[in-house]
């Protein structure tokens, strides 16, 4: 019995270790690359740790570009779009979970279909629309688009969370004289914080990483987001892997921190909403 357990344990340890190496190596490698001076970038044999550690790539990035601006833009954008999506999705998800009404299936179906629509099909008309609204090159246009992008999925996610919470909870509150909305915010929301956190993080990360819409709508330096800036780094002159890797490291740090901090809630939140069967 004891032996069997250690045997099982060692499989687990080996598997999880290998998987960890597989997952972390690319990140390690891009980090190491960012610390290499440009003349060591291509040296053979490959150095798994730079001979001369340097921060020149980071300094360079900060000097030639407005990286602080990009990070700030991305943060503002993702936070606001994430929060707005969350609010809209909470309202929508609540209604979809609690009520039965005409057109409900159609609404859910319409949301489901949005997931299948390739982004590019509507890009040209979308651009014309945005241009008419004078929203080109302005962060609010992306906030709007990202919210639109996130709302359907988040709504259905929230619907799943609400369905797991017995409606007796808010009924009790409504008996005490609360209105439905107050009951929703006072009683139900606090119970499903992990679900909210998970949904928010999902939306935040998606917005943080979105490339094509941002490239499409933004080219002004002051309004660039990180993916747009990264895309610009592939310049005519060279794929400057030094700056590129430094920029990559800088740009993933916020989301990595968010994940490291919030991974517990993500799983907890998803657990709340996972099974609906």
């Amino acid at each position: 019995m004891m032996r069997q357990i250690t045997w099982k344990l060692s499989i687990k340890v080996v598997f999880l270790s290998l998987f960890l190496v597989f997952t972390v190596f690319p990140l390690y490698w891009i980090f190491v690359t960012s610390l290499k001076p440009s003349n060591e970038m291509f040296t053979i044999p490959i150095q798994y740790w730079p001979e001369n550690v340097t921060f020149e790539n980071y300094i360079n990035i900060i000097k030639i570009s407005n990286f602080d601006v990009y990070i700030m833009n991305s943060l503002i954008l993702s936070l606001i779009a994430g929060v707005i999506s969350l609010i809209i999705a909470t309202l929508g998800g609540y209604v979809l979970a609690r009520f039965e009404f005409k057109g409900k299936t159609q609404v859910i179906f319409a949301f489901f279909i949005t997931q299948m629509i390739p982004l590019f099909i509507g890009l040209a008309p979308l651009y014309l629309l945005m241009s008419k609204l004078e929203l080109i090159n302005r962060l609010p246009s992306l906030m709007l688009m990202y919210t639109v992008m996130m709302v359907p999925f988040c709504t259905v996610m929230m619907k799943g969370f609400f369905e797991r919470i017995p409606s007796s909870l808010e009924e009790a509150a409504m008996m005490d004289g609360c209105s439905r909305i107050t009951a929703l915010f006072k009683v139900i929301i606090p119970v499903m914080l992990p679900g909210l956190a998970a949904t928010f993080i999902f939306a935040f990360v998606q917005c943080w990483n979105e490339l094509f819409l941002a490239v499409m709508f933004i080219d002004k330096e002051e309004a660039k987001t990180i993916p747009v800036a990264m895309n610009s780094f592939i310049t005519k002159f060279d794929i400057d892997w030094g700056s590129m890797s430094a920029a990559t490291v800088l740009s993933v740090i916020p989301t990595l921190l968010l994940f490291a901090f919030a991974q517990k809630y993500i799983v907890e939140g998803m657990t709340q909403g996972s099974i609906k069967g």
């Binding site: 490698w29 990264m230 993500i266």
Partner: peptide, 25 residues
């Protein structure tokens, strides 16, 4: 917790960056 934090990293990255990193590798 720490392990989870590490292996969840890829999901925090954009497809665009992942493509670049793998191209480099």
């Amino acid at each position: 917790g720490v392990y989870q934090a590490f292996i969840f990293f890829p999901w925090a990255m954009s497809g665009f960056l992942i493509g670049l990193i793998w191209r480099w590798m």
